[in-house]
Design a protein around this nucleic acid. Structure first.
Lengths: 294, 294
DNA sequence: TATTAGGCCTAGAAAAACTAGGCCAAGTAC
DNA sequence: GTACTTGGCCTAGTTTTTCTAGGCCTAATA
């Protein structure tokens, strides 16, 4: 007969966000990763929400959690709501500070492709601030505060994405090392520098050659580090056209072979709907692309 | 050139909720009221959001705040997002605990109309828990955790509302007092009990009479209190059919005059979409209504 | 048989949110 | 004109929430 309990409260918003992430990604650890907190924090949010609702949302199994039908049934509604909320936040941010453009990019792209192009873009619109954040995986633009995100995408690309450049690979190395390389078979006893993100590059390129040799050599977690090593003559790097163009132009690196392989992948930019309507974003993007993209 | 700042964070969700409420209601005080916090808390949330966005959202004026065009422009997107979030929460709650039904009602309705009907509803489904929360203004069912809300509504009602009873008013009093009342003119020297919520009732009823007398008497902030006084013979109360029927049936109160006025208003129930698909809610509602309502 | 992956729990630390209470300006009532 | 009311601001301090750390457990994998 509980008459007039103070006034029942809704669940904490942060717990809802944690639930949505955990349910969508299928685990607390993944959700923790997305929200930049520890898994324990997610577990506590979920427990709070389960207590509030009075029913379990996940079945705890030893190697992870399994989502209950109840939680599965409401997940899409939550995802939709948070997407809309995120979009509203993005719109607010981009209208409040239209001259502050935030770009998310792969670390190697940020350093090797973006960085050389930024001075020109800044010179074009001096009152615009451009921030660059490096990250391994593309952010969800509906949820995270970026205007542009520049990553490699497998073809075919999504309709909202724009191609900046195709991904073309070919070996590159320091000029003095190149003198010792006349044909791919000469790679046999040379260090072939690998990047951990694109570990299949060498295999892929060699398959287009008549040779059966294998590329062996050190693995780097950062492409820019491998590139630095290549400049120092430490070995031959599999170059991505977008990221070695500056070094080829300056002569720090050369391409010892003619064979260039075009991958089914491209350097792409995607943006939020609110960024698309921001003229500062458009002019920066066109400057980066070197042509009228939008 | 800020390369790789840790990772820009989105704004706090609670600040967004405070902003949405303040923008929608046009003031910090009103938002504070809705969210059950002090205005200072709202002010702090708004300031945090303004700092995050880098632009003012409200123009502070001495007698309140004026919303900026920027904030006005994004308000509807936020309202929509929070409505959807609330709806998802409601769905979760009602599916997680389908046997726990929460009803919001006007205090007088809760005590005088609902309370007498609850035992029968409970007897019908013994495994169902029914909670009742009394409040002055109808809650937004998309945002607050109730399945049913029972309030008086002006006609014409909204399509999602159902009429439980028309609102019919007529004077009522204790039987011994009624012996001294033969015609409305006899009210001249009798205390006419007023309820602060429906202060116009007496005037309205008297206008339908040929008499020109005025009803004077004490004002009560709770209808049930006025009703108690009437039962004790303290005066004549303007009865609302839905709320005095039990007392009329038991003989504690009688209606001294024949004239009954049907107001352009009805006792209505509204429910969330998720409540509508809950069979426990439907059976309780039909039991309360005394007929098959849905 | 180790190791790892993924969760749980608890205690304590850190951060966020809220309240209280004093101040101020502009209407409004007397 | 003078006092009162309304609505917001600010600051300090408290309360609540949120997060982390670190230990424990289980099952799958090497």
């Amino acid at each position: 007969m509980s008459l007039s309990p103070p006034r029942p409260k809704g669940p904490p918003l942060n717990a809802l966000r944690a639930f949505e992430a955990a349910a969508r990604l299928g685990g607390f650890a993944a959700a923790a990763d997305e929200l930049c907190v520890t898994p324990g924090a997610i577990a506590q949010h979920i427990k709070a929400l389960e207590t509030w609702a009075g029913a379990p949302l996940f079945e705890r199994r030893s190697q992870g959690v399994a989502i209950t039908p109840l939680a599965q049934g409401v997940l899409s509604a939550f995802s939709l709501a948070f997407d809309q909320l995120g979009e509203a936040v993005q719109t607010l941010r981009s209208r409040a500070a239209p001259r502050h453009i935030r770009i998310a990019a792969l670390p190697s792209i940020a350093q090797l492709w973006l960085s050389p192009r930024l001075p020109a873009a800044r010179a074009l619109s001096p009152d615009t601030t451009i921030s660059v954040t490096a990250m391994e995986t593309p952010p969800n633009l509906l949820r995270e505060p970026f205007d542009l995100c520049i990553f490699f995408r497998d073809l075919p690309i999504q309709p909202e994405e724009l191609i900046l450049a195709n991904d073309v690979i070919f070996p590159v190395c320091a000029p003095e090392l190149a003198r010792r390389l006349n044909e791919p078979g000469d790679l046999e006893n040379i260090a072939c520098l690998h990047d951990s993100t694109w570990s299949g590059d060498w295999k892929h390129w060699l398959e287009t050659e008549a040779t059966h040799i294998k590329a062996v050599g050190p693995v780097y977690s950062l492409y820019s580090l491998a590139l630095e090593e290549a400049k120092n003559g430490a070995g031959v790097l599999m170059g991505h056209s977008a990221m070695v163009e500056a070094q080829l132009a300056s002569g720090e690196l050369v391409a010892p072979f003619h064979n260039k392989v075009v991958l089914q992948r491209a350097l792409c930019v995607s943006m939020t709907p609110s960024a698309r309507e921001n003229s500062a974003v458009r002019s920066v993007l066109n400057s980066l692309a070197g042509r009228k993209l939008i």
